[in-house]
């Protein structure tokens, strides 16, 4: 009983910590967009290739956040939810 409650609580805390990755990626991608905007203001004729490169770089650096999201989804849906159902059954 207590063990199940501890596991569920640990999964919740771990999911919250893993989502820090999302915030850090947000900072990085905003920085990239700002730099791209500066480059576009300096050279408006290069707009197309700057935008393509920016989107590509942001998509690749987003992988970290996506991995964190996958880990969180796995933790919540494959570990916490079945345990939560068992917990509610035990409570009656």
């Amino acid at each position: 009983m207590l063990e199940i409650a501890i596991i569920i609580g640990a999964v919740a805390i771990g999911s919250g910590i893993a989502l820090v990755a999302g915030g850090l990626v947000g900072i990085g991608e905003g920085y990239a967009a700002g730099k791209a905007l500066e480059a576009m203001a300096r050279q408006p004729e290069m707009e197309g290739s700057i935008r393509t490169t920016m989107v590509l770089g942001q998509a690749i650096s987003e992988s970290g956040a996506i991995y964190a999201l996958a880990v969180v989804l796995f933790l919540i849906f494959s570990i916490a939810l079945p345990l939560l159902e068992r917990f509610l059954e035990l409570l009656g």
Binding site: I60, I66, L69
Partner: peptide, 13 residues
């Protein structure tokens, strides 16, 4: 992995 997880994670999230 990253190519498939990016699309999947964004849409599912």
């Amino acid at each position: 992995l990253s190519h498939s997880f990016r699309l999947y994670g964004n849409i599912l999230g």
